[in-house]
Simulated assay, not measured.
Amino acid sequence: MTDPNVTPPVEPTPRPEVVHHTTINNPPARGGGSSWIGLLVGGLVVVLLIIAFVVFTNGGMTGGRDTNVDIDVDLPRPTMPDVPKMPDLPDVPSVEAPSVPGPEPVAEN
């Protein structure tokens, strides 16, 4: 008796004398995942150009105006009767410079 769960034997197909094999490797299509890097680098280049423009033109487009301004404000000194006057500091004592011996020849052995 034969088992119904077993597949019947398959007879091998005859092989030709000369066998030619051709292998074609198709890489998977890229989804454009690296385009954000180009956008990021381009944005950084634009920001660096703007910073360079501001730095090298001394603050941007001033229109050739003179920006040198002299501000001199004389404010009155407040008078505070409750605060005592600072005492004068004592004079600094005079100090002579230390004497350093001159170089002497070293005895050779």
Rank of each mutant, 00 (worst) to 15 (best):
M1W: 13
M1T: 06
T2L: 14
D3V: 06
D3K: 02
D3C: 14
D3L: 15
P4Q: 04
P4F: 14
P4G: 13
P4I: 11
N5L: 15
E11N: 10
E11D: 10
P14W: 06
P14H: 01
P14G: 07
R15T: 00
E17H: 07
E17T: 10
V18A: 09
V18I: 13
V19D: 02
T22Q: 12
T22I: 13
T23P: 00
T23E: 11
T23A: 11
N26P: 00
P27F: 09
P27G: 06
P28V: 05
P28D: 06
P28Q: 06
A29H: 04
A29Y: 04
G31R: 07
G31P: 00
G32K: 08
G32H: 07
G32P: 00
S34R: 13
S35V: 07
S35P: 02
I37W: 15
I37F: 15
G38S: 08
L39C: 01
L39Y: 01
V41R: 11
G42N: 06
G42M: 05
G42T: 00
G43M: 08
G43P: 03
G43F: 03
G43Y: 03
L44A: 11
V46R: 01
V46Q: 02
V47E: 01
L48Y: 08
L49S: 07
I50W: 13
I50C: 12
I51R: 13
A52G: 09
F53G: 10
F53Y: 15
F53L: 14
V54H: 09
V55F: 14
V55K: 12
V55Q: 08
F56G: 05
F56I: 09
F56V: 07
T57Q: 08
N58F: 15
G59D: 03
M61P: 05
M61K: 07
M61L: 14
T62V: 06
T62H: 13
T62C: 04
T62N: 13
T62K: 15
G63Q: 00
G63M: 04
G63T: 01
G64E: 01
G64Y: 08
G64A: 09
R65T: 01
R65A: 11
T67I: 12
N68G: 10
N68M: 14
V69S: 10
I71E: 04
D72C: 04
V73R: 03
V73E: 03
P76G: 07
R77Y: 07
R77C: 05
P78W: 01
T79C: 04
T79I: 09
T79N: 14
M80A: 11
M80V: 05
V83R: 03
V83S: 02
P84A: 09
M86T: 02
M86H: 01
D88Y: 02
D88I: 00
P90Q: 04
D91E: 12
V92N: 01
V92Y: 04
P93Y: 06
S94V: 01
S94H: 10
A97I: 03
P98F: 03
S99I: 05
S99F: 09
S99Q: 10
P101V: 07
G102I: 02
G102P: 10
P103S: 08
P103R: 11
P103V: 10
E104Q: 14
P105L: 13
A107C: 02
A107F: 03
E108W: 05
E108G: 08
E108V: 12
E108L: 11
N109V: 06
N109W: 11
